[in-house]
Every structure is written in C-alpha cells, then in structure tokens.
Amino acid sequence: MLKLLKYDMKRDLFTLLGGAAALVLGLLAIELLGKQVGMERGAQAVLSLMGYTFFGILILIAVCNSFRLNIRSVGRRLVPLGSLHYVGSALLYGLLLNGVLLVIGGLHMLYYQATGILQQLEQSGSFTINWDSSIPLPFGVSLIVLWGSLFLLTLLLLVMAMMESMRFKGRTLIAVAAVIGISILTSAVENSFFGGAGTQALTGFQIESQSELNLPTESLGAVLPAFLFELVMSALFTWVTVKLINRSVRVE
C-alpha cells in the first residue's frame, strides 16, 4: 500500500509541489495585497477559507484521478496486491494531502492568533467559534476535516470504479449523477435519523454570508451515531469498490 503511494507521489510530484506553492502564494497575496487595497479583515479571512476549500476540492480531484489511473493501468494491476490496496493507498494519499493542507491552515491560524487578528475577527462578530467539546479545537477541526474527506473519498472512489467499469459513452454524466444521488441519500438518512449531525466535509463548514463563518458545534455525543453510520457506509462503499475492481474495471 505504501509502495503504491510512493509511486503515486513520484508520478504527481510536480503537480503537488506546484499546488502547494500556488496555495501559499495565493494566501500571501490575499494577506499582502488585501492590506494594500484596504480589504476588510473579515473579507480576507473568508477569501482565505474559500482558498482552502478550493484546494480541498482539488485534492479530492487529484486523488480520484490518481486512483482512476491506477485501477486502469496494466503495470499497477499486475502487482501481486489485493484490490483493497488501491483503495487504501488512495485514502492515505487523500489523508496525507489534506493533512498538509491542515498544517498550512494551522500555521495560518497561529499567525492570526499571534498578530491579534483572530481576536479582531471574533470581536467584530464576523467569525464565531462555539466549541464546547472536551476535545481541543484544532484537534477537533482536523478530525472533522480528515474524517469528512475520507468518507467523501470512499464514495468518490466507488463512483470512479463504477465509471471505469462502464464501456459506453456518457459515463461521466452517470458518475456525476451517482455522486449527487448517493450523497443526497446519505445526508437524507443522516438528517432523518441523527438530526443532521453528519460530518461530511463539504457541509462541515457553513459560510452563511459573505463575511460570516460558523464552525459546527455539535458535541461528540450527538456526532457519534452519525459517525458510526458514516463508518459503516464507507466500509460498504469500499467493499463494492473492491468487488468492482476485481470483476469489471477494464484494464488498458
């Protein structure tokens, strides 16, 4: 699994370095240029957060793409490893990249804290954190983001495997429809059974208006059943993905 990941990273090396550089440059630009043109602190923070979200999505796309290439590639498929390894290495890849994103974000927060910008934001009311869990905040946020992206990835990988099992045109459309369909279904289930306490990455943060952010504030007790549900679902997604890779994904 780690060896597969190693070759994924070797292959994507330039894209990864380029992406990281682009993110850091973008954040610097928001910080420095924003100051020059007299942008509000709150607007800068929202813009940065949007930047993070955008890169989070790019990471998902990159991981999906790498997974798709892998399950189709003769060289990779000849390797004497079970198909679970392809899913595992893609998930690890996603975790790793999101981890890097979180570290950059964490450093960003430290900078906000050290310069007093964080207090400014909180005082102006454009940024509110109501964290009443026993878990420390940075840890909690990381957990939500990482688990959310993992869960979403298991779904996306399943859809990739479905797409690569089909042999006709228009499979991309079907894949998009499948992503939307399955995620609507899971959030509907979560809403009706667990009162909307899901941890899905894309809905984890709510940007309520142009310059107002809210972090989800569910306590662990409320999240746990939803988390367990998501765990079972992602295991199911992975199981189907592995079956599809074994049975019907066409290798080039």
């Binding site: 060896k3 190693k6 070759y7 070797k10 292959r11 590639s73 003769v74 060289g75 000849l78 390797v79 004497p80 490893l81 080039e252």
Partner: peptide, 26 residues
C-alpha cells in the same frame, strides 16, 4: 510475469524507475 502488448511502464518513468517498480513489487 506478463508482458502486455502495450506499455506497462508509466509515462513519467525512466528505464531505471520502471525497473525499480518491478523490484519494489515482485
């Protein structure tokens, strides 16, 4: 050991890296 009728190495690889891949997995 299967030699397919199309390239099994990946586009980004050098000859050495393609061999290293075999070494790492087999």
């Amino acid at each position: 050991s299967f030699m397919p009728d199309r390239p099994q190495f990946e586009k980004w690889m050098t000859v050495g890296e393609a061999l290293d891949f075999q070494r790492d997995f087999f």
